[in-house]
Design a protein around this nucleic acid. Structure first.
Length: 427
RNA sequence: GGAGGGGUGGCAGAGUGGUUGAAUGCGGCAGUCUCGAAAACUGUUUAGCGGGUAUCCCCCGCUACGAGGGUUCGAAUCCCUCCCCCUCCGCCA
């Protein structure tokens, strides 16, 4: 959510920013609603002041026994109250319209973000590693995984529905090894670990921006709860409606959770394999930072996510998303893409964003620094995958496969696999 | 799930319809004292919104005592619904 006052005072700049994003928004309606809102507030408040004054006087009249005068005054206040009620109705409607508008306007791109219309305008910033050269025809994970008994697509469908998978044997162990490796690695680099609910309420989803605009992407229960699409939701909302002390910033959090996505509108995309499924595991990174440091914090977070891939020896490239390709709440986003032989290309495995004060304003997450300023200010929130575990598992299988159909376990994972160095099919 | 109790400022805890945004205590901040600190004493200490001035300095007003509705001239105080917490019972990993 953007600040209504800031919006009002920077209409032209924000109009241009939304143009760069390719996001349509009715600025004229906003201005009209905002003017109307302030006019009504003025009217309502002046009458409320009258009423408070009169009520106080009535109390005095009652105490001194002037009943007739009191009754007359009461009648006057009733009239005022009727007026207030009438104005209030209009004000409530105007404010809810306004709030709805503010909740659906996307974030303003940071000045360092390249302007563009879609993913073709994203800019690669670096590459690391070399895609493996196989002396044989490499298999895609959707062939390799089932052959080794690691991934079972059919049973995933049997247990739930399509786009759910089952991991078996060393697939399950490798998945768990990746989770533990990622958590331990980030933990050693200054991220505090949390375990959070896999379900969240609507206030929480509103705070991070999944609601109200993207309800179709979420699974929900008939009790009004939603399955989380990412731990970002929970880690960021840990501090919803809180004021943090500046000397505790930046805060760096991480958590492993399953993630659930309806993937409405993704029919036909990535249908093969486990690249796009309804449930996957992810280790998430979240930071709370001051406005002065948040851009550096973003670079650091990207480096932390990249470090996992470096440790795993997986080739990747990092790109910065252009204005037209960024997510709703992001001011700047880097995607990290890992090399996947089956795609003969790089495929997204992490997305790290600085949301600026966009989520903080929605969720009311502030910080105070008495030595620097009075009161409190909104923090900046950042989030990034560190990494998507399912896709990492795919990348390990495909990049580490051998001519005989086995898979070498990356060295850093072996301690998490009981020393196992190769994955073979069942004997 | 059943029965009962309760949700007030950073914390503790008063307040059951009329200058109560809210006593008191603790904590925090500032000052006096001190070489400095402690103690003591004095003062101060919520947030959001609207307007003025103008821009984070102050002034005026409105709103907020779990959330939402209602009664009333007026509600932290009365009524209804919901949420949450505590105690006991039941159930359960």
């Amino acid at each position: 959510m953007l600040d209504g006052r800031y919006l009002r005072e920077n209409l032209d700049a924000i109009r241009a920013a939304m143009g760069a994003r390719g996001a349509g928004w009715d600025f004229d309606r906003f201005v009209a609603l905002d003017d109307e809102r302030r006019r009504l507030i003025g009217e309502v408040e002046s009458r409320q002041a009258q009423r408070n004054e009169a009520s106080k006087a009535i109390g005095e009249l009652m105490r001194t026994g002037q009943r007739d005068e009191a009754e007359a005054a009461k009648q006057q206040v009733r009239v005022i109250n009727d007026e207030i009620a009438g104005l209030d109705g209009g004000l409530a409607q105007t404010e809810s319209d306004l709030r709805e508008m503010l909740l659906t306007i996307p974030n303003i791109p940071h000045e360092s973000v390249p302007v563009g219309t879609d993913e073709n305008d994203n800019v690669e910033v670096r590459r690391w590693g070399t895609p493996p050269a196989f002396g044989f025809e490499p298999q895609a994970h959707w062939d390799l995984g089932p052959a080794l008994g690691l991934i079972d697509f059919e049973r995933g469908v049997k247990l739930a529905k399509s786009r759910f998978i089952v991991l078996g044997r060393d697939g399950a162990r490798l998945n768990r090894a990746l989770i533990n490796f990622m958590l331990d690695t980030h933990g050693a680099r200054g991220y505090r670990e949390w375990a959070v609910p896999a379900m969240a309420n609507s206030e929480t989803l509103l705070g991070t921006g999944q609601l109200p605009k993207f309800a179709d992407d979420l699974f929900h229960t008939d009790e009004g709860l939603y399955l989380i699409p990412t731990a970002e939701v929970q880690l960021t909302n840990l501090h919803r409606e809180e004021v943090l002390e500046a000397d505790t910033l930046p805060r760096q959090y991480c958590a492993y959770t399953p993630c659930f996505r309806e993937e409405a509108g993704a029919a036909g995309r990535d249908t093969r394999g486990m690249i796009r499924v309804h449930q996957f595991d992810k280790v998430e990174l979240v930071k709370f930072a001051t406005p002065e440091t948040s851009m550096d914090a973003l670079e650091g977070m990207v480096a932390d996510a990249e470090f996992i891939l470096q440790q795993l020896g997986l080739a990747y490239r990092t790109i910065v998303l252009c204005t037209g390709d960024m997510g709703f709440g992001a001011a700047k986003t880097y995607d990290i893409e890992v090399w996947l032989p089956s795609y003969d290309n790089y495929k997204e495995i992490s997305s790290c964003s600085n949301c600026w004060d966009f989520q903080a304003r929605r969720a009311s997450i502030k910080y105070r620094s008495p030595a620097e300023f009075k009161g409190s200010r909104f923090v900046h929130t950042l989030n990034g995958s560190g990494l998507a575990v399912g896709r990492t598992l795919v990348a390990v299988l495909e990049n580490y496969q051998q001519a005989d159909g086995s898979v070498v376990v990356p060295e850093v994972l072996r301690p998490y696999m009981g020393g196992q160095d190769v994955i073979k099919g069942e004997a």
